[in-house]
Simulated assay, not measured.
Amino acid sequence: MSLNPYQGMKLVGQWSVYGVTIALPREDVRWMLPDGLELGDQDLTHRDTHPVSLYFGHVRDAHMTFPRFFPPEMTYFEQVVGVPYVYAKRPLCGGRVRGPFFYMPRLFLTNLLATLGGILFWGFPKKLVRVVEGTNPARTDGSYAVCPLYGGGDEILGLQWGATGAFEPATAVPSFQRQLEIMTQPLVSQQPLSVGPLLSCSDFDKLWREAEIRPLRTKTNIQEAFVPGLAPGRYSSEGIDQSPTGAFQLRAPWELSLPYCCGRGRAPGAAPNVPSIW
C-alpha cells in the first residue's frame, strides 16, 4: 500500500499541441513574472533574450484518476503562454529545490469546468475564450485562433502552421531534446487563486515513450498585449528539425499531479515521472 494516499490522484488525458518558441528581451520577460520569481540562466537563446513558449493545444479525455468519473471526461482547446528556466527568489517549503520551474502567466481555455478547476486547485491564471481551428483534409496545414468569449472581436492571438515532415518518436529527434528539457520542468503557480502570495508546484508529465512529433513551419500573430512584457507582434518559426527553438506538433498522453510544496520537487536534471494509473 502506498504511504501517500494521494499519489494516485492525478488529472490525465491526451494532448495534441502546436509548440512555438519565441525569444524576447530579458527585461520584457521579467515583467511576466510575479514578485517571488526571477529568470535564471539559459543557453537556448541569446544571452540578452529569454525563451517564451507558446502552446496551441487540444486536450482530449481529461479526467481525474480518482474518483474516476468526476469530473466527466473533458475535451477542449487550451492555449498556454509559458516562461521556462524560472527560479524562486526565496527558500520554498519542503526542501532546497528552487528551480528551474515553468511559469505560465496566462492560459486560455474553452471549457468552464477546466478553467475553474485550474484556478481553484492549481492556481493557474486561466481565462475562458473561444478557439477557432481550421485544417485541410490531409491535416498538413491549418490555423488556430484564440478569440474573446463574447462578441465578434479580433483574435487575441493566432497561429498558422504547415507540416514540413512526418510524425516520428519524440525521443528520436535530437533537436527536440532541449524542448523536452523545458517540458519536464515542474509548473510553478501562485496560491490561492493564481494571485499569491504563496507558491505551489505540480508535475505536467508526458508519456514520452508514446509521444510523437513532426516539424512545422509557423507564423504566430499576437494581436493584444494580454500579458505584461508580451507586446503585439508577428513571429515566424522554422521546424524543430532545423533548430532546437523550431516549431513542432506533439501528440502524447499526459498526467498532471496535485499541487505540492515546490521545495520537494525533483532536482534539476532528474528524470520525469511517467503515468502510473490510466
Rank of each mutant, 00 (worst) to 15 (best):
V188C: 12
A138S: 14
Y55R: 13
F101R: 00
G165T: 03
S276C: 00
C261D: 15
G123T: 14
A231V: 13
P148N: 03
V80S: 02
R264T: 14
P259F: 11
G40V: 03
A231N: 10
L193A: 14
R214C: 08
T75K: 02
K126F: 08
P125V: 05
V173H: 08
F176V: 03
V97F: 05
V29H: 01
Y235L: 13
T75N: 08
V17M: 11
G40I: 07
P5Q: 06
L112S: 13
R106H: 08
F121W: 14
A163T: 06
G246A: 11
F77M: 02
E255P: 01
F176P: 05
L92N: 02
E133P: 00
R209N: 13
V81F: 09
F121D: 03
W122E: 09
Q160Y: 15
A88T: 06
A145T: 07
L198D: 15
Q190A: 15
W15Y: 12
L120S: 11
G152I: 08
F176H: 02
C147S: 13
M32R: 03
A247Q: 03
P51Q: 09
V59D: 05
P186C: 04
V20T: 10
T245D: 06
P148T: 03
C147G: 01
T110H: 10
H50V: 01
S143Y: 15
R106V: 02
G265T: 09
D35K: 11
L120R: 11
D205E: 15
Q14S: 12
G82W: 04
Y6I: 14
F66P: 00
N136Y: 06
V59P: 00
Q242E: 15
G95P: 12
V59A: 07
G19F: 06
F69P: 01
L198P: 09
L216C: 04
G239V: 08
P137F: 10
R214E: 06
D28S: 12
I119R: 15
L116E: 14
S202D: 10
K126A: 05
P100C: 02
Y76M: 05
D141C: 12
Y144F: 12
A138L: 15
D43I: 03
L207R: 13
T65Q: 00
L107P: 00
K219L: 13
G233S: 09
H63N: 10
D48K: 14
P25C: 01
T140Q: 10
H50R: 01
V188R: 10
G263L: 05
P169Y: 09
R251C: 09
F204D: 01
F101T: 00
A270P: 12
N4L: 12
